[in-house]
Design a protein around this nucleic acid. Structure first.
Lengths: 179, 179
DNA sequence: ATCGTTGCAAATCATTTGCACCCGA
DNA sequence: TCGGGTGCAAATGATTTGCAACGAT
């Protein structure tokens, strides 16, 4: 779980200090492909620096984001998720659990120019985000509906974490119309 | 400012009641093309129903969103913005002030199928959101940089609301890396 | 009359911040 | 040493919710 990629950060040149916490957080974000949340990063970080605080994790993530080293995905009422992948790519985000998955879709990137022309916006290289139901949540949803049809309570007994940390609230399932 | 479009909501058929507040909020969202926030909707709503509360506005917006009558754009630390346009379309969002603008980009919609194939996600018809700097914020940014270069304080004296309610915090300007 | 709705205020929750102590350069 | 960093706890700010009064059907 430890194959850091972008470790050559010139902390010093920006008047910043290289600390154990910063190196660790950066390493954790970059060695994951499941777009961790601040909370899950904290959990993993504490295995190596037990005393590290959530505030430091958030401060570091913001710093890295501002330096352009990582991306942040926020919105939809879920905690933000972070992406340490540096190359230009796209994403799909599950509307039910908030999970984010990378995809490569060069065709999509070409459209930025078109958009810029039509809108007067200086369109940036931010990745495009598609929305949908991930396979796990779709299965879970079918399960819930089956249970309901059978007069069940709507929550299956032993179905665990389809995606990375699903939303527990069944009523928030498939919040149509938001992103 | 009052050319409601989608007023034929079958409140009753869903066990919901038709109230003055709901009609008003729906009408306000649908008659705007600038993607208002809950707060700005409240402000306008109070001109007709002085006693209407923010809670009711939020409750109504959520309801409408869940019924698929409007879209919600959240994230990036800004209050959500709502879109009453019903047809399938795309958006550009300003990373500096949060303003959202509609665009029509049929080519983009065709990609949903490709994405679904590659990711196992059941990709939904949610509009795609591009990110960039809107013309007003780009001008504002240039202005700020000019002022800084001249030893100014970084905030020009009389520049007002470039977009719809810009973020006042200069330091949050151009938060590279988030959406 | 019933039961969904509203207003108000209090509660949430992710994220940020003030501050005193700590540590990297 | 010295100013940036960290942990902790308290503060923010958008959005939600509990509850009693209200009003649509």
């Amino acid at each position: 779980v430890s194959v850091p990629r972008e470790q050559h950060v010139d902390w010093s040149s920006a008047g910043l200090r290289k600390t154990r916490q910063r190196e660790l957080v950066l390493g954790l974000v970059c060695s994951h492909c499941d777009h961790p949340t601040a909370e899950s990063i904290l959990r993993e970080a504490r295995r190596q620096i037990p005393g590290i605080s959530l505030a430091t994790v958030y401060r570091t993530l913001r710093l890295l984001k501002e330096k352009g080293l990582i991306l942040e995905f926020s919105g939809g009422g879920y905690p933000s998720r972070y992406d340490g992948t540096t190359h230009d790519h796209e994403h799909v985000r599950c509307v039910a659990c908030g999970a984010v998955q990378d995809i490569d879709l060069p065709e999509a990137r070409e459209m930025r120019g078109i958009v810029a022309e039509r809108t007067k916006f200086r369109v940036s290289a931010y990745p495009l985000v598609f929305h949908g139901l991930c396979a796990d949540c779709e299965a879970r949803r079918a399960e819930i509906e089956r249970a309901r049809a059978n007069g069940g309570c709507g929550r299956s007994k032993e179905m665990r974490m389809p995606c990375t940390e699903i939303a527990e609230d069944v009523d928030r399932f498939w919040p149509e119309g938001s992103w």
